[in-house]
Amino acid sequence: MSVIELDDVVKRYESGAQTVTALKGVDFHADRGEMVTIIGPSGSGKSTMLNMIGLLDTPTSGSVRLDDHDVTDFTEDELTEERRTNLGFVFQDFHLLPMLSAVENVELPSVWDTSVDRRDRAIDLLKRVGLGDRLDHTPDELSGGQQQRVAIARSLINEPDILLADEPTGNLDQDTGRTILEEVTRLKEEENIAVVAVTHDEQMLDYTDRTVRIVDGVIQS
């Protein structure tokens, strides 16, 4: 059973007189333990599609199913709740908070949940991405690759079902990108999660289980 599904999703942006249809009836699904890579030319709708999968944006028409529940009509607050409990995000430029240490950045998505103490899991995750000796370093004391590893650890803190990554290696050199991809692949298997990544990076195709190509808002099969 798919953990996330898009069904005939259309996304239109209306700005003044102009209407841009970024997604023109997209079907998509991803399963646990699977890494799916979305590729396509610039402006084809990759990020828009990832935002739908990540429950950051809602479709103009069509439906989104998370764990076989229809979340299309969820309110912003309900979507926020789903994002916190079921989704992890990794961004191209890491987006760590500069005033927090590595371990605090990892804990961040969980700190407002005072019912759980995530400190141990945060430390464990940082150790698993090879940063056990960098717990108290702030982002400006870490290299790009290390920052992205902190970001990956952060995305996993709430034990999500899906990890979403928009060009996770886009700001890294070849070798660093490769180690990051190895990290993600290993964690995907350990945590049995679905990974959905958008990329221009050819080497990512070596790690992916399945590739989805989108051109001009339409999936090419």
Partner: peptide, 16 residues
């Protein structure tokens, strides 16, 4: 703005 967007993306509520 970007940072706050990240907070919201990773599930920090609006009220928070």
């Amino acid at each position: 703005r970007g940072e706050i967007g990240v907070l919201r993306a990773v599930g920090i509520r609006r009220g928070e």
